[in-house]
Design a binder for these strands. Structure first.
Lengths: 332, 332
DNA sequence: CTGAAAGCGCTAACAC
DNA sequence: GTGTTAGCGCTTTCAG
């Protein structure tokens, strides 16, 4: 249990001024070797660790960035965080984590906290964030990277996957093969994504002179959604059902099984966001491999560029997806 | 895009001294109503937000706590984080998130960063943290709460689940019912937990004059572990297999299915950590409902007590588990 | 009840 | 090369 030692004490111990100590801890080249050695010895002897808070104050720079996510318990959110943190580590940034818990969290309050905490930037991965919040952040001149939603604002960068295109392509392929009864589950926790998906589906249909109306609204909790889906499939049939998350796809599969619908023969199921669970369950679930880890990693890298005034070629980065056929779809 | 306004400018705008502004933003009772009103107006007009970094420096207190987890992509880790953040929000603490990525992360470096960042406390949820790291943190007088591992040190609190007891009880019950061929999968990402589980199993067996040696070592990645388990079950049979995580239990189930072993008739499977996936897959997987969310919430609450010098009755908090029978076990 | 001033620990000109 | 000093923005005695 040691007293917190300051740069001043190190200076005294080493018999130099604090400026010199500051220089060695910041790796300045100008310090003479013997002086440097003395300082380093003192640092080690006293167990000195620079106070990042004081540095932050002096530099008006905290080297921490704020991250906003909906909640931490989705498998894909976890991947995003992993990617983000791995890159953050490389560039020596810290991550301050904020979640938006439904019913508990006031988004404005989070924004407030973020501004007060003087993070260097904020990365947002949430459908719940409004333009309002973003413009508040903008007012305070805080660089923003938005994950997953394509944002076209001058001061905001975004890293996303083109769900609209993905779903459009998927539907088009199915329509070309004569499958026109396609349903899409609404994901209430990802409203924007759902919107994009619906737009994509509609486009595919209208390209073929058809109309698309089949999207199913499901309650948000697994149990109730499962119940709902299960009921729904008692008297509904579709040729293809598209779900956003693994849990929703599983609910569909369970409902199908219990209602004697065989997958993929009678009904095919596609999950949009791929997680490890899609290949662990039986039948394995066909899905898009959305690069969640990369979504995080790329966003963080982009942030570092923003903060270090590196050239940013593209303010909007579109990441690729790949459709992986598994057991819930036929091969056309 | 506004210039960052300081307390000084607010003071000027309101025609008072900065001390007074400081008093109103800190809710001091002594400020007269009219003065207070003036200040508040100025704050609003200028869009002033106190600089938490400067406050941190002045108070030697950051109101942020560091959280160390292995990686963010496990469903249960997500729950812990959710619990933690929900409580942190209530007590107005921020969370700085650190992950220990295998191959990428040097634990000592994380500890170093944490000390430099002057967090008020750190919560550790990781098997990878050594006594060394903890004692370093101790040297710097940083309060510690350890999740999941029971730590008996004077300066460290811990919140955990008694896995040893859980497994011992489970095995005892089975042994009492004549089931003595029990296997336990090693979870290399949770070495300590595995150790506790094995100890529990051994105790159950030795209580009954038997010996326990059946623990299976599996490689850590799902694919390879699945492959391994799948191979293993080609020529191995057990009456009961205990797995730590959902993915491992699923690997066992898949391997069983492919080798013509019916569950639960020929072999029963129990998963220790319960996640939503355990009840989403078919067959649904019997498991202990480890209160992951609570693990996080209770730890954070404990941390706030530590930081506010509230009375802490118990430095070691043991949380309850509950065994939930689902489709992978028989009912005895 | 309010203001003046010292200090939290560090950085960055500017001197020497 | 190294030291001196003025901030960074805020809190907190201590006076008044």
């Amino acid at each position: 249990m040691m007293k917190r030692v300051t740069i001043y004490e190190v200076a005294k111990e080493a018999g130099v001024s604090l400026a010199t100590v500051s220089r060695v801890i910041n790796g300045s080249e100008v310090v003479k070797a013997p002086t440097k050695a003395k300082v380093e010895e003192a640092i080690k002897k006293l167990g000195y660790k620079p106070n990042a808070i004081a540095q932050g104050l002096a530099l008006s720079k905290t080297t921490t960035i704020g991250l906003i996510i909906p909640e931490a318990s989705f498998t894909y959110t976890g991947q995003v965080i992993n990617g983000l943190l791995d890159v953050a580590k490389i560039y020596k940034y810290n991550i301050m984590l904020h979640t938006i818990t439904e019913g508990i969290t006031d988004v404005e309050k989070i924004i407030d906290v973020i501004i007060k905490s003087r993070v260097d930037g904020v990365i947002i991965y949430s459908d719940k964030i409004t333009d309002d919040s973003i413009s508040t952040l903008n007012d305070y001149n805080i660089p923003i990277v938005v994950i997953s939603n394509r944002v076209s604002s001058e001061s905001v960068c975004s890293v996303y996957v083109d769900f609209e295109k993905a779903i459009c392509e998927l539907c088009s392929k199915y329509i070309a093969n004569g499958v026109t009864d396609i349903a899409l589950l609404e994901d209430r926790k990802n409203v924007n994504t759902t919107k994009q998906m619906i737009t994509g589906a509609k486009r595919a249909f209208s390209n073929n002179g058809l109309s698309f109306e089949n999207y199913i609204v499901i309650p948000k909790e697994y149990r109730s959604s499962y119940k709902y889906v299960s009921d729904y499939f008692k008297d509904h049939r579709h040729q293809l059902v598209i779900a956003n998350r693994d849990s929703q796809a599983m609910a569909v599969l369970n409902a199908a099984r219990e209602n004697g619908i065989s997958v993929p023969e009678d009904m095919e199921v596609v999950c949009v966001i791929d997680t490890k669970y899609n290949s662990m369950v039986r039948p394995t679930i066909s899905s898009f491999s959305i690069p969640s880890y990369d979504l995080g990693a790329v966003s963080m890298r982009l942030m570092t560029k923003l903060l270090q005034n590196e050239e940013v070629e593209d303010k909007e980065k579109c990441l690729n997806y790949l459709f992986t056929t598994r057991q819930t779809t036929k091969v056309y």
